[in-house]
């Protein structure tokens, strides 16, 4: 910690309160900030029971028992749920964004209602409706792929609502002159959208689209609500089951670290993309 001794100053620093120059006051303030920071750390270190932590959160034997299923089943399923839901969300979201920008009012209304509903409902509730409500409402309806299909659909329709707004913002961020130039070359409206506007919109929205992938990766933990078997288990459920079986908290830590294994690199990618974008393409 830096010393905050105030050196005696001459008559030149009379402007400062209590005889301190602005520079000296900044130094004192910074010293206080670091002091609080260190104090909190010391407090936490003293209060935590380290032997308990080692035994119940960082038990190597318990962690070892989770392998290899942690990766071959839990992480694998988590990625399947995430990627399939993302694919549905991407395609559906783009379609809804185009509907929202349509010149036909009914399309705009449907798209707006869709976004409002699925952005407003908790993803968990949507999953429950799809898992247990749909089969009742539509007799004999079976979502293909069982749990995988239901999870992809439930998480996908929610993601689509968010992605639709992102797509819409991206499309509207492409200058109108781009569309005009394409149309003046004889391109039809759909051709101009596909070849000129949407590719530029995608570049603009790569950071928020990557963020959505991170969010879905975490939301895949909600799939447990569909009532899943050991073969369909994802990371959170896998961790909590292991925690119950071993009467230990280590599996929580292991599951958490596995999430971070994916989300932290993704976060770094997003930051790089954003930095590249702010520099201009």
């Amino acid at each position: 910690m830096t010393a905050t001794t105030t050196e005696p100053t001459g008559a030149a620093s009379v402007s400062g309160i209590r005889g301190l120059s602005p520079r000296q006051r900044r130094r004192i303030l910074r010293g206080i900030q670091y002091g609080i920071f260190l104090g909190v750390i010391v407090l936490v270190v003293l209060l935590v029971d380290w032997s308990q932590i080692r035994e119940h959160f960082l038990d190597a034997d318990v962690a070892k028992e989770m392998l290899p299923e942690l990766f071959t089943i839990a992480l694998y399923n988590t990625i399947i749920y995430t990627v399939s839901a993302y694919a549905i969300g991407f395609v559906l979201g783009l379609a809804i964004a185009l509907m929202r920008l349509s010149s036909a009012p009914p399309y705009r209304w449907v798209a707006l209602i869709y976004v409002e509903i699925f952005r407003g409902l908790p993803a968990l509730l949507v999953l429950l409706i799809i898992g247990f409500g749909l089969p009742v409402a539509f007799q004999g309806l079976n979502v293909p792929g069982d749990v995988y299909g239901k999870a992809a659909l439930g998480l996908g329709v929610v993601a689509a609502a968010y992605m639709a707004e992102t797509f819409r913002a991206g499309i509207q961020a492409v200058p109108k002159g781009q569309l005009e130039a394409a149309r003046s070359l004889g391109m039809s409206q759909p051709r101009a959208m596909i070849s000129i506007v949407i590719p530029q919109a995608l570049r603009i929205i790569i950071p928020p689209l990557t963020n959505e992938l991170v969010l879905l990766f975490k939301d895949s933990s909600l799939v447990y609500a569909l009532g899943i078997t050991a073969a369909n288990v994802e990371l959170t459920k896998f961790g909590s089951d292991a925690a119950i079986n071993s009467a230990d908290s280590t599996p929580f830590v292991v599951a958490g670290m596995t999430y971070l294994l994916i989300t932290v690199p993704l976060g770094i990618v997003v930051r790089r993309l954003e930095a590249r974008q702010s520099r201009g393409r």
Binding site: P175, G177, Q178, E180, A181, A182, R183, S184, L185, G186, I196, P199, Q200, R203, R281
Partner: peptide, 17 residues
């Protein structure tokens, strides 16, 4: 018809991507 009419804009409007 637009295929036969070339247009040049004040802001160029080249396709940036």
């Amino acid at each position: 018809v637009r295929r036969t009419i070339g247009m040049v804009f004040q802001q160029f409007n080249l396709f940036q991507h």
